Amino acid sequence: MTAHSFDPTRTGLLIVDLQNDFLHPDGAYARGNQKSADIAALPERVLPVANALRQKGGWIISTQFTLVPGKGGEPFISPHLKEIRPFLTKGDFAPGSWGQALVDELQPADLSVEKVAYSAFYMTRLEWVLRKAGIETLMVCGIVTNGGVASTVRDAHVRDFSTFVLSDGCAAFSAETHECAIGDLSTVARTMTCSEAATLIAGA
């Protein structure tokens, strides 16, 4: 895709799960000692893309993993997640909470969508708001590459969105897992670095 065929006003930077409870030192994952330098570095790396798109009239979309509270505020947690993240508890990733929110560095988002599973399209309003906003192209970044990012990208592909994956704007808990996921996603989306994306946007 060249700058001449790329319309930033119909493009959304889809930020998958870059939330305080995942990334912040006071968040739920830090409390559970689930930390990654690669993940922590993402907001700074993605910010120039977000700023370039804002300047060109594009859209910033934040998907926010959410643990929906049930009776007494106890969250519904899928069995597989409870098994691998036993530290998750009441108040973590709660709707409207600080922990659920997009990290400060990338605020504000034009559109925010709660999600309850890997894919940001699964049982959410994401496709509806994208269509209403006239968004045809998605630049996807966030965490984790092999989980929320991969599932969301594949679902975007089958919905006929023109989809890019920002290869250094995503991360997983291991570099090998990340690289394998990026290779797999290159079959359904175009991959580019954050620098390349910012350059494409600026030249459009």
Score class of each variant (00 low, 15 high):
Glu74Asp: 14
Phe76Cys: 12
Phe76His: 13
Ser78Asn: 08
Pro79Cys: 05
Lys82Val: 05
Glu83Phe: 11
Glu83Ser: 13
Ile84Lys: 06
Ile84Glu: 05
Ile84Tyr: 03
Ile84Thr: 12
Arg85Asp: 11
Leu88Glu: 01
Thr89His: 14
Gly91Ser: 07
Gly91Tyr: 02
Asp92Phe: 04
Asp92Pro: 06
Phe93Gln: 01
Ala94Gln: 11
Ala94Tyr: 07
Ser97Ala: 13
Trp98Met: 05
Ala101Phe: 15
Ala101Ile: 14
Ala101Ser: 15
Leu102Lys: 00
Val103Arg: 00
Glu105Ala: 15
Glu105Trp: 08
Glu105Gly: 13
Gln107Phe: 08
Ala109Glu: 00
Asp110Pro: 09
Leu111Gly: 04
Ser112Gly: 05
Val113Ala: 05
Val116Trp: 14
Ala117Glu: 10
Ala117Arg: 15
Tyr118Thr: 03
Phe121Leu: 08
Tyr122Asn: 13
Met123Gly: 05
Met123Glu: 11
Thr124Arg: 14
Leu126Cys: 01
Trp128Tyr: 09
Leu130Thr: 11
Arg131Gln: 13
Lys132Asn: 10
Lys132Gly: 07
Ala133Cys: 06
Glu136Cys: 06
Thr137Asn: 04
Gly142Lys: 07
Val144Asn: 04
Val144Met: 11
Thr145His: 04
Thr145Ala: 07
Asn146Glu: 15
Asn146Tyr: 09
Gly147Trp: 03
Gly148Leu: 13
Val149His: 02
Val149Arg: 02
Ser151Asp: 03
Ser151Leu: 06
Ser151His: 13
Thr152Tyr: 12
Thr152Met: 11
Val153Arg: 01
Arg154Phe: 12
Arg154Ser: 03
Arg154Glu: 09
Asp155Thr: 09
Asp155Tyr: 07
His157Ser: 10
Val158His: 06
Arg159Trp: 02
Asp160Arg: 03
Asp160Thr: 12
Phe161Lys: 02
Phe161Cys: 04
Phe161Trp: 06
Phe161Met: 07
Ser162Tyr: 10
Ser162Cys: 08
Ser162Thr: 09
Phe164Tyr: 15
Val165Trp: 12
Ser167Thr: 11
Ser167Gln: 08
Asp168Leu: 07
Gly169Ala: 10
Cys170Thr: 15
Ala171Cys: 08
Ala171Pro: 07
Ala171Lys: 04
Ala172Asp: 15
Glu176Cys: 11
Thr177His: 00
Thr177Met: 00
Glu179Tyr: 08
Glu179Ser: 14
Glu179Ala: 13
Glu179Lys: 14
Ala181Thr: 07
Ile182Leu: 10
Ile182Ala: 08
Ile182Phe: 06
Ile182Trp: 05
Gly183Gln: 15
Thr187Leu: 12
Ala189Thr: 04
Ala189Asn: 04
Ala189Cys: 12
Arg190Asn: 08
Thr191Ala: 09
Thr191Glu: 09
Met192Pro: 00
Thr193Gln: 05
Ser195Gly: 13
Ser195Lys: 09
Glu196His: 04
Glu196Pro: 04
Ala197Pro: 00
Ala197Tyr: 04
Ala198Thr: 05
Thr199Phe: 06
Leu200Thr: 06
Leu200Val: 09
Ile201Pro: 02
Ala202Trp: 02
Ala202Leu: 05
